[in-house]
Simulated scan of single mutants.
Amino acid sequence: MANPEPQFGGAPVPRHVAIIMDGNRRWARGRNLPRLEGHRRGAEAVRNTVRAAAEMGIEYLTLFAFSSENWSRPQQEVRDLMGLLRLYLRRELAELHANGVRVRIIGERDELDPDICGLIERAEETTRNNGRVTLIIALNYGGQAEIARAARELAQRVARGELKVEDIDEAAVWSCLYAPDVPEPELLIRTSGEQRLSNFMLWQTAYTEFVFDDVLWPDFDRAALERAVATYCGRERRFGGQVG
């Protein structure tokens, strides 16, 4: 007998939730604290959100951790962010694994330090058979770059005679994305009050429901996640074929 869908307020929870984690620097600035403290508190919010998502029955959680544009930030801030990433992958792996969390990283790895790539590979390999929730971290990621990468791969397939131009369709593009086996997010949350995608999952969010929350990311907690899911569950989703 199949397991029933996880419910929230009588409605199925979204299988895949994506979050643009925004507001770490503003949180710190508002408290006269260094930027690093905002990022540290943001890492704690990640821990709490992953735990809450697993408990709510969300199957996939994608977090926008570092965009390809973030390299233009002050060098010290970039070093701090990479240092926090190292700490997260080292310190949280055991707990993530014990709690049935599968870790996956999407984005370009060429610009990352070799030790970070090693930590990523270890986390992915250690947790690859876990099935409670899949945590997808978008790192050195850009949505336009992902689509361009898919276009290059399709062009290479055509050049090798493996694919005809007329056979390139939406499914073919999807197959060349970073995680083609992961379903599109039903819900995307952005914190801090900003209302834009910022080059995040441009292809995958064609019919995603958006929730914009004024809370700054370090203050995001289970209540905020539940609030966003409740908003999603209260909507009637439309996919272009419905009128009115």
Score class of each variant (00 low, 15 high):
120 I>V: 14
119 L>N: 10
101 V>D: 00
127 T>C: 04
101 V>I: 14
103 V>Q: 02
120 I>T: 06
117 C>V: 14
121 E>I: 00
109 R>N: 05
105 I>L: 13
108 E>R: 15
114 P>C: 07
130 N>V: 09
127 T>D: 02
119 L>H: 12
126 T>Y: 02
124 E>C: 04
112 L>Q: 07
112 L>V: 08
112 L>R: 08
117 C>Y: 00
107 G>N: 08
132 R>A: 05
125 E>H: 14
119 L>F: 11
128 R>F: 03
125 E>Q: 15
113 D>L: 13
119 L>Q: 08
122 R>M: 10
107 G>S: 11
104 R>Y: 06
112 L>C: 09
120 I>N: 09
130 N>E: 11
116 I>H: 09
101 V>P: 00
124 E>H: 07
100 G>L: 05
125 E>T: 15
102 R>C: 06
113 D>C: 00
121 E>G: 13
128 R>P: 00
104 R>C: 08
117 C>G: 14
106 I>K: 01
124 E>A: 06
106 I>A: 03
114 P>G: 07
108 E>K: 12
114 P>R: 13
105 I>M: 15
123 A>L: 10
110 D>W: 03
113 D>S: 15
113 D>M: 10
103 V>R: 02
123 A>D: 07
101 V>L: 05
128 R>Q: 14
116 I>G: 08
122 R>K: 14
121 E>H: 11
116 I>W: 06
120 I>W: 07
116 I>S: 07
128 R>W: 03
129 N>T: 15
122 R>P: 00
113 D>V: 07
116 I>T: 15
103 V>I: 13
129 N>W: 06
115 D>T: 12
110 D>A: 14
122 R>Y: 01
110 D>H: 12
122 R>C: 06
110 D>R: 14
123 A>H: 05
118 G>R: 11
115 D>W: 08
102 R>W: 01
101 V>W: 01
109 R>Y: 04
108 E>F: 08
130 N>S: 08
132 R>F: 04
103 V>S: 00
